[in-house]
Design a protein around this nucleic acid. Structure first.
Lengths: 142, 142
DNA sequence: CCTTGACTCTATAGTTACTAGAGGGATTGT
DNA sequence: ACAATCCCTCTAGTAACTATAGAGTCAAGG
């Protein structure tokens, strides 16, 4: 019934090294060992590993997951805090989305400046990327 | 007219260490030095630094920027390649956006499962995060 | 019994794009 | 002359792994 690390990793859909990494990071308790010093994971270990992977698939940081694992020990009492953590994470995801929207906008504007190299005798994209008021206007070689 | 590193960094809107880092990464050519071994940046250096920062503000990798700096030496001949690089970057940004949209969807579904801790005697969010078929169903302690 | 192969162990270094610090020298202003 | 501010090099730290090196363990086959 107990799993060795390879089996545990396969079931959780990650690499063996990742499992060991979680242990070292304090997200997964140290498992029992065989006589030959192999790790032996219980069902509960596997559940926790899957929990971690599920959180990671939602892009939560290991720090967040650490908190969740702590809160998880008293799910009812900590329900509000758990909700808050998820809300905060959603907020961060939305923040990142906004950033990407702006980014794409800027990139598309830049891309749209290209009207063929013949027209202006230079690449308009490079010109766009070079635009800046921080330096003098003179053309100069590095 | 030449700038010391502090002035150059300020004009480019980054830290002194970042400028040195770009030099070490091969994005910025080694500048002249004063007798006292201080870096002295020319106008051209500053332009290149701003170019790099501009690209970074568009979230391009230093690797991308390295390529762009190379292509930039022959802007007309390389116009197509430059466009391709920007297009590829836009594609990556959009890919990331799609990921975030899915992520937010999953997170909101998870968040929506919470119906108050009294209802089911546990936190539905934790239950959602624990869902997985990789392990046995039995409740178990770690 | 011995060997082969698959698995596991620890420890260490690499990835990205910086950032922060130690411990020292240079320059500037009073 | 001295303090404040700049600058120098070198090293280590960040997140979340990934990828080695070099060794040990274990089951099956000959």
């Amino acid at each position: 019934m107990p799993y060795r690390i390879g089996e545990a990793a396969k079931r959780a859909g990650c690499k063996v090294e990742t499992v060991r990494y979680y242990e070292q990071a304090g997200l997964l308790p140290e498992p029992a060992r065989t006589e030959g010093n192999f790790r032996l994971y219980s069902e509960a270990h596997l559940e926790q590993l899957c929990f971690i992977r599920h959180c990671r698939s939602l892009n939560m940081s290991l720090e967040d997951i650490r908190s969740l694992l702590e809160l998880k020990t008293r799910p009812i009492e900590n329900c509000a805090e758990i909700n808050a953590l998820v809300d905060e994470h959603i907020r961060r995801v939305e923040e990142q989305m906004d950033l990407l929207v702006q980014l794409r906008q800027s990139l598309q504007e830049l891309r749209g400046q290209c009207i063929g190299p013949e027209a202006t005798g230079t690449c308009e994209i490079i010109r766009g990327l070079s635009e800046c008021e921080c330096h003098g206007g003179a053309d100069s070689k590095v």
